[in-house]
Structures are given as structure tokens and as C-alpha cells.
Computed example of a mutant assay.
Amino acid sequence: MEHVLWTIYLGLLGTASLSYLIKGKYKSKLSKIDFVVSVITWIGLLGYVTEIAILNPSLWKFIAVTALLWDVLFAMLLKDNEGEEILDGLPIMTRRVWMLITLVIAIGPLYYGLFRYAFS
């Protein structure tokens, strides 16, 4: 059952990002870098889910830490917007807290799996 849930999660992440790619939402250089980082982390999660060794574990340790730092910086500081329209009336700190909560819920499992893959 756990394998099925991981596969569904991986599929949801990939589908969301690929739909953004097809719609042309990745326009800036930073968003294109974010897409590449996402693809690399999916490959690591795929290795974790399928229990297949892809590349060197030392490389995955570097990728896991670097990608996590990138995602937090990109989501909280580098993106062009400070949240969706639903957050317009909130102070900037409250927006960032909600963005961080959303980030943890959306990609927390990705980094849990990636860190398990890299450090076990």
C-alpha cells in the first residue's frame, strides 16, 4: 500500500509540473531552473520508491540538501509573487507563513523520500 501511495504522489508532482510546462508557465530563468531541480528530485524519489540505485549515494546527499535549500529560497524569496490572490489582504509575514505551510505539505513527502534515499 505504501508503494502505491508513493507512486500516486510522484505522479501528482510530475503531472502538475508537466502541465505548467505545457502551458508555458515556466518563463523566467529562475522558474526554468526550478523545473530542472524538480525533475532531478523526482528521479531521486523514483529511485527511493522503486528501491533502485540511481547514481552515487554521495551525489544524492548533495542533491537533497541543495534542492531543499533551492526550493525554500525559490518559494519564499525568489518567486515573482508573494502568494496567490487569496492571500492579498494578509500582511507579508502571514503570507510567508502560509506559503511555508503549503510548501511543507506539498513537497515535504518529496524531501522525506529523497533524504531517506540519500542518507540510508
Rank of each mutant, 00 (worst) to 15 (best):
H3C: 04
V4A: 15
L5K: 08
W6Y: 12
I8A: 15
I8L: 15
Y9T: 03
L10G: 11
G11M: 13
L12N: 07
L13W: 10
G14A: 08
T15H: 13
A16K: 13
A16Q: 13
A16M: 11
A16C: 06
A16E: 13
S17Y: 13
L18G: 07
L18D: 09
L18V: 07
Y20R: 05
Y20F: 13
Y20V: 00
Y20C: 07
I22Y: 15
I22K: 09
I22V: 14
G24H: 12
G24V: 04
K25V: 03
K25R: 15
K25T: 03
K27N: 10
K29A: 10
K29R: 14
K32F: 05
K32M: 14
K32P: 02
I33C: 08
D34W: 08
D34G: 04
D34E: 08
F35A: 15
F35H: 12
V36P: 04
V36E: 07
V37L: 06
S38D: 09
V39F: 15
I40S: 08
T41N: 09
T41K: 02
W42C: 12
W42H: 09
W42F: 12
W42Y: 15
L46M: 12
G47S: 12
Y48D: 02
Y48L: 07
V49W: 15
T50Q: 10
T50V: 07
I52C: 11
I52E: 12
I52W: 11
A53T: 06
L55H: 14
N56F: 03
P57A: 08
P57G: 07
S58W: 09
S58T: 03
L59Y: 11
W60D: 04
W60L: 04
F62D: 04
F62L: 09
F62S: 05
A64D: 06
A64S: 14
T66H: 06
L68F: 14
A75R: 03
A75V: 10
A75D: 09
L78P: 02
L78Q: 01
K79G: 00
K79E: 00
D80V: 00
D80F: 00
E82P: 00
G83A: 07
G83D: 04
E84L: 08
E84S: 14
E85A: 13
I86H: 11
I86N: 09
I86W: 10
L87P: 01
G89P: 01
G89R: 00
L90W: 03
P91F: 04
P91R: 10
P91Q: 07
I92F: 15
I92E: 06
M93R: 08
T94V: 12
R95F: 01
R96H: 05
V97W: 10
V97Q: 05
V97Y: 08
V97P: 03
W98L: 11
M99E: 01
M99T: 00
M99W: 00
L100D: 03
L100Q: 05
L100C: 12
L100V: 06
I101N: 05
T102G: 14
T102H: 15
L103A: 02
V104W: 07
A106M: 11
A106Q: 11
A106G: 04
I107P: 01
G108Y: 13
P109F: 14
Y111I: 07
Y111M: 09
Y112C: 10
Y112H: 02
Y112P: 01
G113V: 02
G113H: 05
G113M: 05
L114E: 10
R116I: 09
Y117C: 02
Y117M: 09
A118S: 11
